[in-house]
Design a protein around this nucleic acid. Structure first.
Length: 394
DNA sequence: TCTGGGGTCCTAGGACCC
DNA sequence: TCTGGGGTCCTAGGACCC
């Protein structure tokens, strides 16, 4: 989906169309204040001048999405709001409204599934779809079906997307970047030399900032440079698995399947504080935030129908270094008190002297609640319920 | 004035077991 | 003086992605 969060915001604030708008921050509900101030009129009629702009923002946080108009100023995803404010002080800043984006996410995915049922979920704004067995899916190399999907999504949501069609996921992902926004690009195996090799290595999904730096030190900048290296040399420099993968990826080879179903591995909650907190001096506040994270996490698990048995914490210090600790308990749980207690034990195992900027709580080792109940029923525990009410676990 | 929140996967060492 | 070979689970950190 093109500039997804921002595009969803423009649906309710069409008066912002064409203007630099960024989504980010979010601790202060700027949009609520805005709506309160203009409660007497529809959202679409709130004057542009009434919207908060980056210039007036002094908080912590990053941009999650920028409209294409904002990108003209060099503003983009993952950029700190303070830096963005320097580049484009007049950009309108809206807080993240994840519930709203999830609503549109479900809508566009339902649309894709109706046309191409073999769909893999890749997060809130991205999917892979397998055209292979869709009637007409091969017409014009997939372009016809891509157009139909774009049109259907637009009719249903008012949102645009970009589609890449290729023989595999690796190439399709790269192809989807070629004609943004609202574009379609078809890449065949035979196009790898001309269309893929000139690109920087970083364009490969799986080569991040660290690998890019290491490759640059070895004088490898483009995917073509990478493809010119012997497999053994890449294995020697990047390890058996990653080296071999780099070799395949540079040639556009990828045999991963489109995975239509998957189970979550972990569920977590984390928060960055408005200001760095100290374990002793801000004990009360920290304790309250900690409990709240555990309560929300327990709620997430219960709502989604999972229990887990590895409870963990994550801290980020004021120097941005992170540490994690986790502990596996006897029985799977989704109970806030159990999570809070175990996470508390984890917290005792880390250095709490430096100031903290982030605290997170995670539950892994997940199991479906329904399987957990079934397992208990199958075991003696449930066939001979204890007098003290073991079944209350459920 | 730096740098969100929610994830997955990989690596590597140690415990423990057969 | 020498001390196997597998396997699984747990834990910590880190790269990467949306």
């Amino acid at each position: 989906m093109d500039a997804f969060y921002a595009s969803v915001e423009l649906l309710r604030y069409p008066q912002l169309k064409g203007l630099p708008v960024v989504i980010g921050g979010g601790r202060r509900r700027l949009d609520e204040a805005l709506r309160d101030a203009h409660a007497d009129r529809p959202l679409a009629e709130i004057p542009v001048a009434a919207f908060p702009v980056l210039r007036d923002y002094a908080g912590r946080g990053v941009i999650t999405t920028a409209t294409y108009a904002a990108r003209q100023f060099g503003v983009g995803s993952a950029m700190g709001l303070m830096k963005a404010a320097k580049l484009c002080p007049q950009a309108i800043l809206l807080p993240v409204d994840f519930d709203e984006y999830r609503k549109y996410s479900r809508l566009f995915k339902a649309t894709v599934t109706e046309l191409a049922p073999q769909m893999e979920d890749r997060g809130v704004d991205e999917v892979y779809a397998d055209f292979t067995h869709v009637p007409g899916g091969q017409r014009e190399g997939g372009r016809v079906l891509a157009r139909l999907i774009q049109k259907s999504i637009f009719e249903r949501t008012g949102l645009t997307c970009s589609v890449g069609v290729a023989p595999n996921k690796l190439l399709a992902k790269m192809a989807s970047e070629f004609n943004k926004p609202n574009g379609i690009s078809v890449v065949f195996e035979a196009d790898v030399q001309t269309k893929i090799w000139p690109l920087p290595c970083r364009k490969i999904n799986g080569i991040g900032p660290k690998a890019e730096i290491k490759l640059a030190k070895l004088h490898i900048h483009t995917i073509g440079d990478l493809a010119a290296q012997p497999r053994e040399w890449l294995v020697d420099n990047f390890g058996k698995a990653y080296g071999a993968w780099l070799h395949d990826a540079s040639r556009g080879r990828d045999n991963r399947a489109v995975v239509t179903e998957s189970e979550p591995v972990s569920i977590s909650r984390e928060t960055t504080f408005d200001r760095d907190l100290h374990a002793v001096r801000d004990k009360a506040q920290l304790g309250q935030i900690f409990t709240e994270l555990c309560t929300k996490l327990a709620g997430d698990l219960q709502r989604k129908g999972y229990v887990g048995k590895t409870i963990g914490i994550k801290l980020r210090y004021d120097n941005f270094k992170s540490v994690t600790r986790d502990q596996t308990i006897e029985t799977h749980t989704h109970d806030a008190t159990t999570i809070r207690h175990t996470a508390g034990l984890c917290l005792k195992r880390v250095n709490l002297a430096p100031r903290l900027r982030l605290l997170g709580v995670r539950v892994g080792g997940l199991m479906k609640m329904s399987d957990f109940v079934q397992q208990a029923v199958d075991s003696k525990l449930a066939t001979t319920p204890a007098a003290d009410g073991n079944l209350s676990l459920f």
